[in-house]
């Protein structure tokens, strides 16, 4: 039994347990769609110029922007909170006492989160196409998929790294939200910033959320060319690698005391 087979088997068990918790599964999927409807209803009437210089209707912009939000929820938020809970309830310690390689377990969690992210993005795109006539990407499709994979993997790594700063499961939602919500507001996700203050512009440029959102929106709305946003992808990837390094170094299999 090699480590990859074990990881894939872990995905199957994680998936089974995920769907057996209907409340959790329902809201994981309903949440981003809810945001899509709300933001479009509030801001959806005008036009917006995206970071890649394309001018579209605001409702069209929100489809890939909320898709980016879905990826962050499924990967970063769910991994960080989920791992904190399994750590505090002793599941991780028990797993660590078995011959299952550590990375097989974590890879299983990551692969499942990425699959959920892909499903969420597909749902956003389909909903957008039907409700807001936002066309699915054609010329930028491969760039869109590449951005999706790089972003999902990076935000999973960052979610794992964040668990090192979460003292206990009760604090997990608060820590995760405090780390991600402000960034979602200043990173062209919830609100497409047209003339942000210089400090906000500079601040959001440091973090991966804006680069990921811009890259996903840019490829989704590409009118010609590949739609690939090279620099944004590199920044997201570097954050992902940093997350991986911190995760490997500081990850704990036991509750923190």
């Amino acid at each position: 039994m090699n480590s990859l087979t074990l990881a894939l088997r872990q995905v199957a068990y994680t998936n089974k347990a995920f769907w057996r918790n209907p409340a959790s599964a329902f809201f994981t999927f309903a949440f981003p769609l809810m945001f899509l409807v709300i933001f479009t209803a509030i801001f959806g009437s005008g036009q917006v110029t995206t970071a890649s210089g394309v001018t579209v209707s605001t409702s069209t912009f929100y489809v890939p922007a909320i898709a980016a939000f879905s990826v962050i929820t499924a990967c970063y938020t769910n991994i960080a909170i989920g791992l904190s809970f399994t750590r505090d309830t002793g599941v991780l310690k028990r797993i660590h006492g078995t011959p299952l390689p550590a990375w097989s377990y974590l890879a299983g969690r990551i692969i499942h989160a990425v699959l959920m992210a892909v499903l969420l993005v597909a749902l956003c795109a389909a909903f957008g196409a039907v409700a807001y006539h936002a066309t699915l990407p054609s010329s930028g499709l491969s760039a869109f998929l590449l951005t999706l994979v790089v972003g999902a993997a990076s935000f999973c790594a960052l979610g794992i790294a964040l668990t090192a700063f979460i003292p206990n499961a009760d604090a997990a939602p608060a820590v995760v939200n405090a780390s991600i919500l402000p960034l979602l507001f200043i990173s062209n996700v919830f609100i497409p910033l047209q003339n942000p203050p210089a400090w906000m512009d500079a601040l959001s440029n440091i973090f991966p959320v804006r680069h990921f959102a811009d890259a996903l929106v840019g490829s989704f709305l590409a009118v010609n060319g590949s739609g690939i946003q090279g620099i944004d992808l590199v920044v997201v990837g570097v954050w992902g690698i940093a997350g991986l390094v911190i995760g490997v170094r500081f990850f704990s299999w036991e509750p923190r005391v």
């Binding site: 039994m1 872990q10 068990y13 347990a17 399994t86 002793g90 310690k93 028990r94 078995t98």
Partner: peptide, 27 residues
């Protein structure tokens, strides 16, 4: 085999599934 003082398992898997999962880790 280890029985720790306090450990958890995934609450949404069945007894049989949980055992199959752990069995799959061993040769």
């Amino acid at each position: 085999g280890i029985v720790l003082q306090s450990t958890g398992v995934d609450p949404f898997l069945t007894v049989a599934e949980t055992l199959d999962m752990y069995r799959s880790y061993y040769p």
